[in-house]
Design a protein around this nucleic acid. Structure first.
Length: 570
DNA sequence: GCCGTTTTCGGCCCGACTGTTTTCAGTCG
């Protein structure tokens, strides 16, 4: 059982307990546990035999450790099964309607015996809800309006889409008279791979003007709520955007506060409390006196901490590191000198070798690898041995035309379902760079997936494993990989692992890449570009690397051409 | 349900906004 599956059991348990009206701190304990499990780079299932090991995890005590053990061993948690019997699935779905939380959902369930969104709609239309205690006409209307949203399932959008919306609104806010600092906060600023909403912070002498601009913005479908300091609007795909106007002296505190994550902030506020201080979005206070607030740096400093890059603010140990001055110097986009995964018209790319090389050069890169598909990917016009050799001849010719950038003769070679490679050894031996990948049979059982990955890692011709899990965020689960075994094999055989920068892949993810770093495995960040514009996606791979705590020295394609060639040892 | 250099009980982060209320609970982030 994978960590995500274990975590989701505890999340559901928390939801159900909340509806039941359980002690909120108990509910929180379940959510914290879920989060810990999700963030853990080790397989929780493999620890499940050892209660003491489980209890070493933060937020996991005697009770939760036993529940994890029971879940792994039997596939179920009796307490959860019981709660599922008592509270129908539809009651949880009601909580997806904005404005309906656990308390109101519970009232609807108990008082009106509402079991599903369908029941709820009928009751609202029959005017049965407005009369309930704590409900009124407005709530009834909110429910009807929110119905569609709940049915279309609260969806997160890719970082690239959220960031684009944020950048558009920010640039329009900057045009307003009297506007000061403007900045994205929240998950967009933390560069999380998907975002549920967009947070924007602004300092403005005329907050009305800023609020008006947003209300009428071309991206805005409706205004959800509007107060003096805060406005919430809905954009495309149900994406919510919150604009907050704050005083200049509180900007840093507000930026810190609204950047999150929630878990990071809880830890930080607890730390403040222990120091006899109070931290909120208005500033850091000792009694009534404001100690810090204008900049984030001074807020962290007043708490005895170095400024923490937003990408690390997930409460995964960054606060302790900041205290000890042990934060990593995170990699930056301009430190990359190569891009080792891209396609051309030889397979399913849209641009020529020359065009890709020129575009990469324009972006300041010193070397690239052209890695078209191998023959198994027939849909993408994948290359067999003879075609690949001919393609490499083309690359050699292109080298003479495009000066000032090294072009490696590469290939993205499929690892076939039977654990063999898609191209013969004598062909692969002639490559400068081989990136091996899973494309097909991602649903094979773990044993076979591992056999495939290990055999690729053991091949002397393979340099790196590309987009290792094969996941597509929000669309396709990745292969079932035993990461401990996988990473150890990569480390033992000196193979590199990729962070694929495509906004829907970002594979390895942050937790996996951090684990790889821990074993000293060199990471390559590649765009997997299929046209020249695709090279622009590199930034998203860098964000994921930063979230993993990677520095330039952890990433092989920050090396100079000479040093990278030495690393390849070909 | 977790946790401990104020320890094994009694805490557990904080404020804005909304709607339904005459002082606050619920929801949200």
């Amino acid at each position: 059982m994978q960590n995500a599956e274990i975590a989701s059991h505890f999340d559901e348990l928390a939801d159900l307990l909340e509806i039941q009206g359980a002690n909120p701190f108990r509910v929180r304990a379940y959510r914290t546990a879920s989060r810990t499990i999700l963030d853990c780079s080790e397989s929780i299932a493999s620890l499940a035999d050892d209660i003491a090991k489980l209890r070493e995890l933060p937020g996991i005590g005697e009770d939760l450790a036993k529940k994890i053990q029971t879940l792994v061993q039997t596939g179920a948690i009796p307490q959860l099964e019981e709660l599922r019997q008592q509270i129908p699935r539809g009651v949880l779905e009601m909580m997806r309607i904005p404005g309906l939380g656990p308390k109101k959902a519970a009232v609807l369930f108990h008082e009106l015996k509402i079991h599903s969104l369908e029941d709820l709609k009928k009751a609202a239309e029959a005017d049965q809800i407005a009369g309930l205690k704590g409900f009124g006409k407005k709530t009834q209307e909110t429910i009807l309006k929110g119905m569609e949203l709940a049915q279309s399932a609260a969806q997160r959008v890719y970082l690239i889409d959220a960031k684009e919306a944020a950048d558009a609104v920010i640039s329009d806010l900057r045009k307003i008279e009297g506007i000061g600092e403007v900045c994205a906060a929240g998950s967009v600023r933390r560069r999380k791979e998907t975002c549920a909403d967009v947070d924007i912070l602004a300092v403005a002498s005329n907050s009305e003007a800023a609020m008006d601009m947003l209300a009428k913005h071309r991206l805005v479908e409706m205004v959800i709520a509007r107060g003096e300091t805060k406005q919430s609007v809905r954009l495309f795909k149900g994406l919510q955007l919150d604009l907050r106007v704050v005083p200049a002296e509180s900007f840093g505190a507000a930026l810190q506060y609204f950047t999150g994550s929630k878990e990071h902030n809880v830890s930080l506020r607890r730390r403040a409390q222990e120091m006899g201080l109070k931290l909120n979005e208005w500033g850091l206070f000792r009694d009534e006196e404001m100690v810090a607030g204008e900049t984030e740096e001074e807020v962290y400093e007043a708490l005895g901490l170095a400024w923490i890059p937003p990408e690390l603010r997930e409460n995964r140990g960054e606060i302790a590191d900041a205290e000890q001055g042990a934060l990593p110097k995170l990699i930056e986009l301009n430190e990359l000198r190569g891009d080792l995964h891209m396609h051309t018209t030889a397979s399913d790319g849209a641009a020529s070798i020359d065009a890709m090389a020129e575009a990469a050069k324009t972006r300041g890169l010193e070397y690239i690898a052209i890695t078209d598909h191998s023959k198994r990917v027939s849909m993408a016009n994948g290359l067999d041995g003879p075609r690949l050799r001919a393609h490499w001849k083309e690359i050699e010719a292109a080298r003479k035309r495009v000066k000032g950038i090294e072009i490696f003769k590469g290939v993205e070679c499929d690892i076939l379902e039977d654990a063999t490679l898609d191209l013969p050894d004598d062909v692969l031996a002639e490559a400068d760079w081989v990136i091996a990948v899973l494309h097909y049979g991602l649903n094979q059982p773990r044993d076979q997936i591992m056999k495939r990955l290990i055999s690729a890692i053991e091949s002397p011709h393979v340099d790196a494993i590309g987009h290792p899990t094969g996941r597509l965020i929000g669309k396709r689960k990745g292969a079932d990989i035993d990461f401990e075994v996988f990473l150890k094999a990569a480390a033992d055989h000196g193979k590199m692992l990729e962070i694929n920068a495509h906004p829907q892949r970002l594979d390895l993810d942050d937790v996996q890449a951090a684990a790889a770093k821990g074993l000293g495995i060199p990471i390559v960040i590649d765009t997997d570009a299929h046209n020249t514009a695709g090279l622009e996606m590199m930034e998203f791979g860098v964000y994921q690397a930063r979230r993993a705590g990677l520095t330039a020295s952890d990433v092989a394609n920050t090396k100079s051409l000479k040093d990278f060639k030495r690393l390849l040892n070909r």
